[in-house]
Design a protein around this nucleic acid. Structure first.
Lengths: 228, 228
DNA sequence: ACAAAAGTGTTTCGGCTACACCCATGC
DNA sequence: GCATGGGTGTAGCCGAAACACTTTTGT
């Protein structure tokens, strides 16, 4: 069993591209980068990086995110593999798209600025290079699906937040307006949130209680996948 | 813009592994292979193949399936990328797992026999090489999710089938017993099936009408992804 | 006649929806 | 007091689940 067993086979460049979601000012946002290398230098793109021999693709995505945003322990999820031979005019690159959910408040703004990055509202994205538009579209689809089955705020919101914050996040994700009363009831029946006794008075005169996620997160939405 | 732009980067072997689902005798089955090359020669594995430079990973999966089973136009869906550096003792191979749904009746049995393949019931699989067990587990999860949102029989069942056939397939997929009456009603409300006037009398004295899928398949199960 | 699967009907239950309606407070 | 968002209550609707019941026909 040597490493040369498969030597007759073609080898490929493998990359990861990260769709970095954040949430700020009631809007779902994506972190995009001015591409620093040819081809398409200077255009907007997702955060990408090469996969090395001694790491998994998840490791690679984590490393690239750490180097660029200073964040660690980021939620990552595979989205889709893009492998059109001509997708990157610079050469044949197989790229795995990853969803990354980050708390905008926490990332290292210096690092990000250095890398020529900018947060864009989900509904006003610029044209992206290559097939990155497709990646974003798949990523959003996946994010919505995920958000349908579990509360995903724990990665996008700060530690303490109000139910209204959570609702506004969901409004942004699904581009709709959820009924405040029904939304609250649904979220509370899931038994994933812990009420604190502090209030946020910035949003209303009455003030809204802060909640936080229970430690055993990963609560599902009760919508069991089930047919018939 | 030359093909040598990215020449400093490490290149990797990229493979596809196909989880080939079929349905026969009321059981969900997987097509497994006696591996023909070292390492792990002779052990059971999924159908795998290398990705070439001039093709997408989907092309590669299609090609491998065609060469091995003689089938074309097979339903394929990406499942997950497996990239542990040590997952294959023969070398660092990044593998993309694909779900393939085939009509067992249609494949080229000669070709398959030549390749030392065998259909295994989903509940009595042998130990598989490498991380192929994990692949199967992810594949099943994905299949169930898919089956929850759309009727998937059109790839696994013959052209004409009874509602009972469809129910038995679903029973096999979800390892449960759906209520015959409720199942029938649910499937018919989806408006995806077309009744014929021929009957299958093999299953009962009364006989059951054959149905076929409406041409515009891809009907979803009415379970809209929706929260609140 | 009877067994056995096909197919229909009925009742109950729980969750979602669409509201109406209090509550607390800053102005 | 009144406007504003926070928070609670409730009636109606709809689909899932459970299960009784009717139909058909080979034996």
């Amino acid at each position: 069993m040597s490493a040369e067993l498969y030597n007759n086979q073609e080898r490929h460049l493998v990359a990861v591209d990260c769709i970095i979601f954040g949430y700020e000012d009631g809007e779902l946002k994506l972190l995009l980068f001015h591409r620093g290398i040819v081809p398409a230098k200077g255009e907007w793109s997702l955060l990408g990086g090469w996969v090395n021999t001694d790491e998994t693709i998840e490791d690679a995505a984590e490393r690239v995110l750490m180097q660029t945003t200073g964040l660690k322990d980021i939620y990552l999820e595979q989205v889709h593999v893009f492998s059109e031979p001509e997708r990157d005019p610079g050469g044949r690159v197989i790229s795995i798209a990853f969803n990354a959910l980050v708390d905008i408040k926490k990332h290292n703004k210096e690092l990000v600025r250095e890398h020529g990055a900018h947060w864009w509202g989900i509904s006003e994205l610029p044209k992206l290079i290559f097939d990155h538009d497709q990646m974003v579209s798949k990523a959003l689809e996946k994010l919505r699906q995920k958000a349908s089955y579990e509360i995903i705020g724990d990665r996008l919101l700060p530690e303490y937040f109000t139910i209204s914050d959570l609702r506004t996040l969901y409004n942004a994700i699904f581009q709709t307006e959820f009924d405040p009363g029904n939304f609250r009831k649904k979220m509370l029946t899931l038994d994933a949130l812990k009420k604190t006794n502090r209030k946020d008075t910035s949003g209303s005169k009455k003030g809204a209680f802060y909640y936080k996620f229970k430690t055993d997160s990963k609560i599902n939405m009760g919508k069991k996948i089930k047919i018939v």
